[in-house]
């Protein structure tokens, strides 16, 4: 049993102009997706709420994938950032009547700082691989314990976010659920854009090199600590925005919804299921997972846990046959189509 280093993420530039077919296909895909994104607006309340949740978590998981997919780290504590974002936007709005967007901004700054600090420490002290996963998990747990014992944040009762209709759209109070859907859509698109920007930036190339072989990357003059910390800070910040949106969407946050280990796992699972190295991966994973759990909720009423069983089996199947996730399957299909066209010519 020899240990094979994971292949570096392909750090190609934007699709090459020499292969116009591929470009058209990609362009068509994005246009189709953009149009599809408008469909839930015409649907009923349940459809809107389903896709709002799916999109918020698509954004959160894209944030995770910036670290988990591009750098080769396996962070298992992203609930820390999710929770910080959720609590800061909730507290700012519920306690001081400030604009929740300000709270989200605050959450992003705190999460990014926390992510930078924990990663810099980890690299400095050579906490790697599996240890890094457990190390981040411990940070998440610490925050959960603090939140459930701190009077200021309501201990285990959490924070209720009152509905203030007079506050209006600028403060994330929507009387029409479709309003929140648009916010979630914007956030999902934003996260994917950040992921793509990082992936195809000099930072992304450095991360790809570190993922391939850290020692070689370091020897070639890459500042490993800086690159990984920056990557985790961006990842934590993006995830934290989603936490803030989610708290306002369900109008409530408590330590278990914000910081529980299962939140960290859920965030990672959505990304991995969809394919954590591909731009669309986390979105596909999140959409699949939200739909499966909704389906189980509707049609298997007496066995709501069935959705988790399906997810568990799906992860095992993916690990065996589709290591690049749902998006990877799509990529392979796309290649197949392109190749067939090529041979016909």
């Amino acid at each position: 049993m020899s240990t094979v280093a994971p292949a570096p993420v392909r750090a190609t530039g934007s699709p090459s102009p020499r292969r116009p077919m591929r470009r058209y296909l990609l362009f068509g895909l994005w246009v189709a997706l953009a149009l599809l994104a408008l469909v839930p607006l015409a649907g009923d309340r349940q459809t809107v709420s389903l896709w709002t949740t799916a999109l918020i978590f698509a954004g959160v998981s894209s944030g995770w994938a910036i670290a988990g997919g591009l750098s080769g780290l396996i962070p298992l504590g992203h609930a820390a950032f999710f929770g910080v974002g959720a609590y800061s936007s909730a507290l700012v709005f519920a306690k001081y009547d400030w604009n929740p967007w300000l709270g989200i901004g605050l959450g992003v700054v705190m999460s990014a700082a926390l992510a930078w600090l924990m990663t810099a420490l980890a690299v400095r002290f050579k906490v790697k691989g599996a240890y890094f996963g457990l190390y981040t998990l411990a940070w998440g747990e610490m925050l959960r314990i603090i939140a459930s014992n701190w009077d200021y944040v309501g201990k285990t009762n959490g924070v209720l976010i009152p509905f203030k209709p007079e506050a209006g759209v600028a403060q994330m109070q929507f009387s029409d659920p479709r309003g929140f859907y648009v916010v979630a859509l914007a956030y999902g698109a934003f996260s994917m854009a950040v992921f793509a920007l990082v992936k195809w930036s000099p930072l992304g190339w450095r991360l790809s090199a570190i993922r391939g072989d850290e020692a070689t990357a370091s020897a070639s003059g890459i500042n490993v600590s800086r690159s990984l910390s920056a990557c985790m800070a961006i990842s934590g910040g993006v995830t934290s925005i989603g936490g803030g949106l989610y708290a306002h969407y369900i109008q409530f946050i408590d330590p278990e919804l914000g910081f529980n280990v299962s939140v960290s796992i859920d965030i990672a699972v959505r990304a991995i299921l969809g394919g954590e190295t591909l731009v669309l991966g986390p979105f596909l994973g999140s959409a699949a997972m939200t739909n499966v759990s909704e389906f189980a909720h509707d049609h298997l009423g007496d066995l709501p846990q069935m959705s988790l069983l399906i997810v568990g089996v799906a992860i095992i199947a993916l690990a065996h046959w589709f290591p690049r996730g749902i998006a990877g399957v799509g990529l392979q299909l796309g290649r197949l189509v392109l190749r067939r066209r090529g041979s016909n010519r």
Binding site: I74, M306, L308, V311, G312, I315, I316, A319, H320, P323
Partner: peptide, 29 residues
């Protein structure tokens, strides 16, 4: 579930994650 994936990157870790989720949901069912 795992022996085929030994030495192939994160495969074994993912399988144990899947087993965790599947078993926990079975237990609560």
């Amino acid at each position: 579930l795992i022996s085929r994936l030994m030495g192939r990157g994160d495969g074994p870790l993912l399988v144990t994650l899947g087993v965790w989720i599947a078993i926990e949901s079975l237990c609560s069912m």
